[in-house]
Structures are given as C-alpha cells and as structure tokens.
C-alpha cells in the first residue's frame, strides 16, 4: 500500500474548539446540532493525487511580483516537510499558502476596513508541490500583525501564515495557520489558544533555523513540518 488507507476521527484535545465566545463568526456559522457518526468508506479514504493538473504550482517566491521590485519587509524562508501519521513523506502534494503583507494587510477585497497600506509588490499568496522528501519551501516577507475589527473583544492576530494542504485522501485535507516563535501576541490570540492541548499549540509554531544552518544569508529561516491525517492499516516494515 503506497498511500494511507486508514483514517480515524481527530484526537479531540489536539484540535481547536469549534465555538469561541468572542469570535462572533464561529457562533453564527457552526451547526447547532452535533455531527452524525458515519462509516468511513472508499470515498473518504481516496482523494485527488494529481491536483497539479488543475492547480498551477511553482509559485514559491512571494517576495516579488513578476520579477518586479522586492516587497517591503523582512525576507523569510519558510520550509518544512509534509508527513502523514506514520511519519512518511507526502510527495507531489499541493501546498497553498497566503498571508498579510509586512503592514498586516491582505491583498483581498474582504480586507477593506484595514487602514494599513497595500504593497504593490506583494500579493501574499503562493502554491507549490512537495518534493520526494515531502519538503516544501517558500521565500516571503514576515507578515505583520493585524487587528480583528467589529468584535465585542477586539484583538490582534499575531503574525501568521495560512496553509491549505491536501494530502492523499479527502480526510487528509487540512486548513491551518503557522505562527512565529517568540511573538508576544501569540499568548493572547483567540484562534491559536482555541487548541486546548499545549502540545497541539506547539505544533502550530514554526522553529527558527539558526543562520549557519541555512544556505542563504538574505532571509530569516523558519522550519515548519505539517502532519496530515492518515496512516497505513498494515504496519510498515513487515
């Protein structure tokens, strides 16, 4: 078996709570009834393996647009491996990421109330394929923090990068966010702290790569492994 063929429900404490009192949208959009248990069948343990035929990849450099001038801000190099629950690399899998610019503004029409400036040299989105080791890498700009408006409890989102990950089955599909180590705003973020388990929260925070371990000297390096659901029912190595 080359791909995971066994998918279990998530381990609850390592996943976020669904309703967050001060996050109004979570109260308006979460179902009021608990989800129904269903058997897992072939549809759930399969998924698109050749997505690059639909989704254009090779967009690894967010630091400039069409070879134009470099975006404002601190250059960062974000890399890591995509693994399944057996620790096996997930190869040739699409990784999408998006983020705010250095001032904390998204290039998106929904970010219209934010007074922070746009950066014409920064789109803030990229897409790539994982390699034979399951590795991905992006060159980008350190995102700024931004305030969440129109809430009873206003708060600052700490610098973060959004990830959209596919894996090898429909049940391995994952949307998540990556945080930066040592950011004071991490401690007060309502979304990061919606994950009850401390180890779970730690899995969302990237690790700084010491400069001497990085091949390039122009960007601050961060290592961030991503783990999607799915393992193999037959133990490997037998």
């Amino acid at each position: 078996m080359t791909t995971p063929n066994f998918f279990e429900a998530y381990d609850e404490p390592s996943q976020p709570v669904i309703r967050i009192a001060q996050y109004r949208e979570s109260l308006l959009r979460s179902p009021s009834r608990p989800p129904y248990k269903r058997p897992v069948t072939l549809t759930e343990i399969t998924g698109p393996l050749n997505l690059a035929r639909k989704l254009k990849t090779g967009m690894n450099d967010l630091s400039r647009v069409n070879n134009g001038a470099r975006a404002m801000g601190q250059l960062i190099w974000v890399t890591g491996r995509l693994l399944d629950e057996d620790g096996m690399p997930v190869r040739g899998s699409v990784i999408e990421l998006w983020q705010a610019n250095a001032a904390g503004r998204y290039a998106h029409k929904a970010d219209s109330q934010n007074p922070a400036p746009h950066d014409p040299n920064f789109l803030g989105s990229g897409r790539c394929l994982t390699d034979q080791e399951g590795r991905y890498a992006f060159l980008s700009i350190k995102p700024g923090a931004y305030p969440v408006p129109n809430h009873a409890a206003r708060w600052w989102r700490p610098p973060h990068i959004h990830f959209s990950i596919f894996g090898e089955g429909f049940m391995s599909r994952l949307i998540t966010q990556m945080y930066f180590p040592g950011e004071p705003l991490n401690a007060a973020d309502l979304l990061l702290n919606a994950v009850p388990d401390e180890k779970g929260r730690e899995r969302l925070v990237a690790k700084w790569i010491p400069m001497m371990q990085l091949e390039r000297a122009d960007a601050v390096g961060f290592e961030h492994d991503l783990v999607v659901r799915g393992h193999r029912a037959t133990p490997m190595g037998f």
């Binding site: 693994l83 629950e85 994952l174 659901r229 133990p235």
Partner: peptide, 10 residues
C-alpha cells in the same frame, strides 16, 4: 514507524 499527530486545523 514514527507515529505523528496531525497538525491542528484552523
């Protein structure tokens, strides 16, 4: 096999 826990969803 090294067992990993899935990254939390957001």
């Amino acid at each position: 096999v090294k067992k990993r826990t899935p990254t939390p969803s957001h």
